[in-house]
């Protein structure tokens, strides 16, 4: 079933993929540069008044946005068949697994669980 989708979309992908054209790509590039500048300035601010570690979260949020934009437009996931979408989402899911299971160590260290 999945591969039928692939075949169905194949001719579409073959077409030179100026999906958003040069201006579109420049727009994406601008978003990335803006994100970088934003990351720099946020790093200089102390956001701990929101909650501890807010800086990290904001930086990660910006990074995630940039990553999504690159994936969707530069890497053409936006116009790709469902199998490619699944692979892209699957990869992020795997990244989440790594973070989650690593954090279950860090967040439970020294909490007094089992004596120390």
């Amino acid at each position: 079933m999945a591969e039928q989708t692939t075949e169905h979309h194949n001719p579409h992908v073959e077409v030179p993929n100026e999906h958003i054209g040069i201006p579109g790509y420049l727009g994406v590039f601008a978003v990335l540069v803006l994100g970088t500048i934003l990351t720099y300035y946020v790093a200089l601010m102390d956001l701990d008044w929101i909650f501890p570690g807010a800086n990290t979260l904001v930086a990660l949020g910006i990074a995630f946005t940039k990553m999504t934009v690159v994936g969707l437009f530069f890497m053409h996931v936006r116009w790709s068949p469902r199998l490619v979408w699944m692979s892209a989402v699957g990869a992020f899911f795997w990244l989440t697994i790594m973070f989650a299971y690593t954090m279950q160590d860090y967040l439970t260290r020294g909490t007094g669980f089992f004596g120390h």
Binding site: I97, Y101, T108, G110
Partner: peptide, 22 residues
Amino acid sequence: GFLVWGHHMFVSGQSMYASLVF
């Protein structure tokens, strides 16, 4: 196989809770 890596780390100083899960 991706969810069990912590079993290399039972004595490494990883939290005991994480060791249990792994």
